[in-house]
């Protein structure tokens, strides 16, 4: 894979940070008019950030510098033209129209990771961040960007900026690690952070705790997550269709059987046996609260004493409920 970024700051970035966008643009244009090679070399430096390339896009076009850029920069610009101007990716820039090739993956990752610190630059730049994130997650299944993606969502939310497409991309990953990344914001001093975290982590003990307790809910949430992670699955809900989407949920049946499921498609890691299905049939005929009680007790008993769990599972379901209620004190 190509290099996606660098810890050093490029020459053009330093000018931009020190003197501002307009000074950088004017200087770059002047350099390019006297020496295209020198302008291309500045643009192709290792530490370049995507925001600088994006800001200099008109000057690159004016100087017809495309052919002199390294493939990563050409691919990034071609991608911007495609998303923002409707142009097709073409073979002469070395990109495939399928959008699934490794050079595209590498360029998108560079765009996203070096662009994150400049998010908010402009509407079009932020749109490119959205598209880069959704491609990296949905097309390339790249989990490396998840921590930065979560940070970007919360930064934008604090400013009241548009977050829908980033949230959609994040939950498209169907990666349970995002839950603990989001949960950290429950501890935030900022009320907007805590409120968004609670909204995204819906359907968890936070709801039972109430809004006032949400910013103190970090530890209980992690405890809940630890217990339920093997049984979590991601839904297809989203803010595009619902005011209160359930983005992630617990499969109570799987928890009752103590069988891990895939968070992607809710399928059990190992196929259910005939006996499992018989247990599930009886389980699913109970009320929601009873199912939650049985699932919680089953999981805890299985973890502490597998032999007792095997015995308990052989009891009729009414007796299972009776025992669970007695041991858990009716908690669900």
């Amino acid at each position: 894979m190509q290099e996606t970024g660098s810890n050093t700051t490029g020459y053009l970035d330093r000018i931009r940070i020190r003197s501002g966008n307009e000074a950088m643009k004017a200087g770059f244009l002047k350099t390019g008019q006297s020496s295209r090679e020198k302008a291309a070399a500045q643009m192709n430096q290792g530490g370049l950030r995507f925001a600088t390339l994006f800001i200099l896009w008109p000057e690159i076009d004016a100087l017809s510098l495309d052919a002199d850029l390294i493939p990563r920069n050409r691919t990034a610009l071609a991608f911007c033209r495609r998303i923002l101007r409707g142009a097709e990716l073409s073979s002469d820039t070395g990109e495939s129209s399928s959008g699934r090739d490794e050079p595209i993956h590498s360029a998108l990752k560079w765009m996203f990771l070096t662009g994150a610190q400049d998010d908010g630059l402009s509407n079009e730049f932020d749109q490119m961040m959205d598209v880069a994130a959704s491609h990296l997650i949905r097309t390339f299944h790249d989990a490396d960007i998840l921590p930065e993606l979560v940070r970007m969502i919360f930064r934008r939310n604090r400013k009241g900026y548009y977050i829908h497409d980033l949230v959609w991309a994040l939950f498209s990953s169907r990666d349970p690690r995002i839950l603990s990344l989001i949960a950290r914001y429950l501890r935030s001093q900022g009320s907007k952070d805590a409120a968004l975290a609670a909204k995204l982590l819906k359907n968890t003990p936070l709801e039972e705790a109430g809004a006032a307790a949400q910013n103190r809910g970090y530890a209980p949430y992690l405890s809940w997550l630890s217990e339920n992670q093997p049984y979590l699955y991601f839904t297809q809900d989203g803010f595009h269709q619902s005011s209160d989407p359930t983005l992630c949920s617990v499969d109570l049946g799987a928890k009752y059987l103590c069988r891990k499921i895939s968070p992607q498609d809710r399928q059990p890691s190992d196929s259910f046996s005939q006996s499992d299905y018989s247990h599930l049939d009886a389980f699913r005929q109970r009320e929601e609260a009873e199912m939650a009680l049985l699932a919680k007790y089953s999981h805890r008993l299985h973890r502490t004493n597998a032999a007792h769990w095997n015995k308990w599972m052989e009891y009729p379901i009414e007796q299972q409920i009776q025992i669970a209620r007695k041991r858990l004190g009716g908690a669900s």
């Binding site: 495609r82 998303i83 959008g99 959205d130 598209v131 959704s134 491609h135 997650i137 949905r138 097309t139 829908h164 497409d165 959609w168 991309a169 297809q236 989203g238 595009h240 269709q241």
Partner: peptide, 14 residues
């Protein structure tokens, strides 16, 4: 619902 929407056009997710 359009679960397999093109990532470049999230407005068509549904």
């Amino acid at each position: 619902m359009n679960p397999d929407v093109n990532p470049e056009t999230p407005e068509w997710q549904g």
